[in-house]
Design a protein around this nucleic acid. Sequence first.
DNA 1: CGTTTCACTGTACCTTAAGTACAGTTGGCG
DNA 2: CGCCAACTGTACTTAAGGTACAGTGAAACG
Lengths: 210, 210
Amino acid sequence: MKEIAATSGKPKPARERLLEAAKHAILAKGLAATSIEELIVEVGISKSGFVYHFGDKNGLAKALMERFLEEDRLILEGIFRRGEELDEDPLHGFLVGLQLLIEMLQRLPAAHPGCIAASFCYQDQLVSREIRDLNLSAASGWRRQFRTRLGRIAERYPQKIKVDLDELADTAWILIEGGIVLSRMMQDPGILPAQIRVYRDFIRGVFQGE
Amino acid sequence: MKEIAATSGKPKPARERLLEAAKHAILAKGLAATSIEELIVEVGISKSGFVYHFGDKNGLAKALMERFLEEDRLILEGIFRRGEELDEDPLHGFLVGLQLLIEMLQRLPAAHPGCIAASFCYQDQLVSREIRDLNLSAASGWRRQFRTRLGRIAERYPQKIKVDLDELADTAWILIEGGIVLSRMMQDPGILPAQIRVYRDFIRGVFQGE
DNA sequence: CGTTTCACTGTACCTTAAGTACAGTTGGCG
DNA sequence: CGCCAACTGTACTTAAGGTACAGTGAAACG
């Protein structure tokens, strides 16, 4: 499929507008509760137009997943690279990255809009194998990323608290996804950044002690 | 509504069988992907029978939520009370409780069946306000429970790592729910108990240091 | 012993949503 | 000029949830 050219000034093509509308609706209500009808009315397109672009709801879900996994990846990667720029020590670079993440999350307005990944993983049979695999490979990517950083830290800093680094890498992903969920549930946007702060404190505790 | 009497020998009433069938189906596929039709076929009841017992899908979801929140509550409460029985020191009683929880989770067969609460919180508009409130009040209950225990520990043990106890209490809930999700996604039942172990190590680190 | 209540069944029908098929249109570009 | 991407319009099918309501068999109750 041809990529949408970066047509700057023109009105955004329907495909774009559909993805945007779908993003908001799905994050707010979930995939199942979002109807194709409401989306096409919102962006002013026909049902046939929808079918032309995405085939079916699953196609829309897949396109969304691809887009937002990539978006999140870029943001998070940028943050942690910046952390390493600011302090080349592996431990402190990581701690700076975490702090930048915390501050970014604090700046977000209301309760975090949530994460398409989290939103899909409990709607299993509703989305295709393909989509679950996308989600899975993204999570595996994060696991590797964090694991690598923790490994580099461990080379220089002896562990004051004994924990498995693989598990500690998973903890980051879990606190983010779980934090989003609890933030939503409690209607408290502060919960997510607070949990990253807990993670940061733990990392410091593990490698620096009290 | 009258409670179902503990009719021991007799065949389980349809309501019970529906709840059981719904539990498995919803944990496996999510609420939206589970049809009333498939449930009534499975337990051999008519659609009118379903309506008689639950009114609609939302009624079923609510009944399920109530039941399993209560079930989980009893299990977790039992575990942590037992921990306190085995060691009356608040820190060590809690650590023992966490260890018992880890071992229980390790004994569970395949990937953790998941948690109705986690399964519902991203299907927001699909379930009624009532159900979200149930979920919310259960989460608040756990927050209080853990917070109280952490408070008792903090009275006796100075904190070696500075963390906010409210946030640390939330971390427990988040790691459980998030751990279930990642366990499911990765098809790895070990992830959930491993994360509780990470939490346990952290608690020890916070109050005992290295 | 009659009556009420519980736990259902059966039939019928409505609405929403997703999905399928396919023919037709429009505007820009080579 | 003609092609092609990006649509529109119409028509139909199926699945699923939800509503309404009359009826029934067994057992508990007074």
